[in-house]
């Protein structure tokens, strides 16, 4: 039983990181109809910035958190303004290709700005081990699960009750009508890129806290994308939950079926789910596939 619980906890922890990045994918898709293939790289850049703050400014958890969030907002806004906005109205394929190009640039930037060595995000919390009923869990793992749940609740409330959230939903549903209603689509897009960068960046920072920081970290995007597909490409909350499902499935498969099955299990589940619900568990039926 302890073996199963340990697998579930670890699965939830890594799944929460996938979930956060997956939510980043979904926020952009929901607002702009675009799949951002540079999501993993944006996640990685934010984590590297957090590490830089922790080593050069202060290792205080609040300083690192605020600095990283501000940096992620800036990163999202800069990318939207300089790279994505000029692509407005262009064919979706061309825009998607731009995000792929952006991914390559951001990936290379790691070596130019930082280096290829692995680094640890050493802030006062996160690396400690607590024992819950004889099961060792890192504090960073507990924190990421709590953060994901808190963000899920906050985002649900944001889309449900806030003016900006409703405006974002309106743009997602019909941007022309939203424009006629006085909603600025470009502003909503900018907000979506900033929000996506922050949410995914939080996932990246937690990953760096629990594991390490290296130029290979962009691969998290490849792991989180299936979570978005599973939850629904246009379902922000669903994507978060999709991450948890993928994390748990991977770990159970790895623990009971063998190491080789770990990476396969998540994708196998996606194939099965998409055969039944092609738009994802929580996605809307008329989703446009890219």
């Amino acid at each position: 039983m302890q073996y199963l619980i340990q697998l579930l906890i670890s699965g939830l922890a890594i799944g929460a990181i996938y979930g956060l990045i997956a939510m980043g994918f979904a926020v952009i898709y929901k607002s702009t109809g675009l799949v951002n293939f540079a999501q993993g790289e944006m996640t990685m850049i934010t984590a590297y910035i957090a590490w830089t703050i922790s080593t050069t400014v202060s290792g205080n958890v609040f300083v690192v958190a605020i600095g990283a969030i501000l940096a992620a907002v800036l990163l999202g806004l800069v990318i939207e303004r300089l790279v994505m906005r000029p692509m407005l109205g262009e064919p979706v394929f061309a825009t998607v290709m731009v995000t792929i190009g952006l991914a390559v640039i951001l990936r290379s930037a790691i070596n130019f700005i930082w280096d290829a060595y692995p680094h640890g995000l050493d802030i006062s919390m996160g690396r400690g081990i607590v024992h819950l009923g004889g099961i060792g869990v890192r504090t960073g793992q507990i924190a990421v699960i709590v953060t994901l749940l808190a963000l899920l609740a906050a985002i649900w409330a944001f889309f449900r009750y806030s003016k900006v959230g409703v405006a974002m939903r309106a743009v997602a549903a019909d941007d022309r009508t939203a424009l006629l209603m006085g909603i600025s689509a470009t502003r909503v897009h900018a907000l979506a890129w900033a929000a996506s960068s922050v949410i995914a960046g939080i996932g990246g920072v937690f990953f760096a806290l629990s594991y390490d920081l290296s130029p290979a970290m962009f691969q998290l995007g490849l792991k989180a994308f299936p979570a978005t597909i599973l939850g629904g490409l246009d379902a922000v909350l669903g994507s978060g939950l999709g991450g948890l499902l993928i994390g748990i499935t991977e770990n159970l498969a790895g623990g009971y079926l063998g190491s080789g099955m770990k990476e396969v299990a998540g994708f196998a589940m996606i194939i099965v789910v998409l055969m039944v619900r092609p738009f994802g568990i929580f996605g809307e039926r008329d989703i446009e596939r890219v």
Binding site: Q6, A13, L222, K223, E250, N251, G254, K262, E263, V264
Partner: peptide, 13 residues
């Protein structure tokens, strides 16, 4: 065990 290249989480392994 035999893990897939690029794997980052080794908790179950």
């Amino acid at each position: 065990g035999n893990y897939k290249k690029g794997q980052q989480d080794f908790s179950s392994d």
